[in-house]
Simulated assay, not measured.
Amino acid sequence: METCNDSVKALEMIKNNKFHIVITDIVMPNMNGIDLLKAAKSYDALTQVIMMTGYSTMEITIQSLEFGANDYILKPFKSIEYIIEIIDYSIQKLERWRESIRGLVAK
């Protein structure tokens, strides 16, 4: 697990490494979370991106989902267990996609 508090650095990390799950805030300096989401998906469409924000609007929620966010978490968080459940769901989704791809390739 790696963390950073700079969206530009986060994008460089995404470009140079394989991340299965990216958790990003929507409001950040230099680049917002929607732009980071789009960039992450352009490098690897299977990357699970979980958006989080304390400043939600319906427009931002819809944009996040339209651009491929796996989930959307409102701050303050309900509990750490809630966050772990969302991450576990993302892992399960990746595993299902991998199995589907393996099944297609094996045919």
Rank of each mutant, 00 (worst) to 15 (best):
V49C: 07
E81P: 03
K78C: 10
I80D: 14
A40I: 02
E12Q: 12
S56M: 05
C4W: 06
I86Q: 14
I73Q: 02
A45K: 08
Y82V: 01
A69F: 00
I50G: 07
D35H: 01
A69C: 02
I101Y: 11
I73L: 09
S100W: 09
K107V: 08
G103V: 09
T3W: 08
I84Y: 02
G54M: 08
I34E: 01
L94Q: 11
M31D: 00
R102F: 09
D6E: 04
G33Y: 07
N5Y: 03
I14V: 15
N16T: 13
K9G: 04
D6F: 02
S79R: 10
I62Q: 13
L46F: 09
S79I: 13
G54P: 10
K9Y: 03
V105L: 10
L104S: 15
L104H: 12
S79C: 08
S7D: 05
M13K: 08
F19I: 04
S79F: 10
N5G: 06
D6Q: 04
M52A: 12
I86Y: 04
E59T: 13
V49D: 06
K75C: 01
S100I: 15
K75S: 03
E85Q: 14
W97S: 12
S42H: 03
M52H: 08
N32G: 02
R96V: 05
Y82I: 01
N5D: 05
G103N: 14
L11E: 12
Y82M: 05
I21K: 01
F77N: 06
L65M: 15
M58L: 15
V105W: 05
N30K: 11
P76Y: 01
A39C: 10
K18G: 08
L46N: 15
I26P: 00
K107P: 07
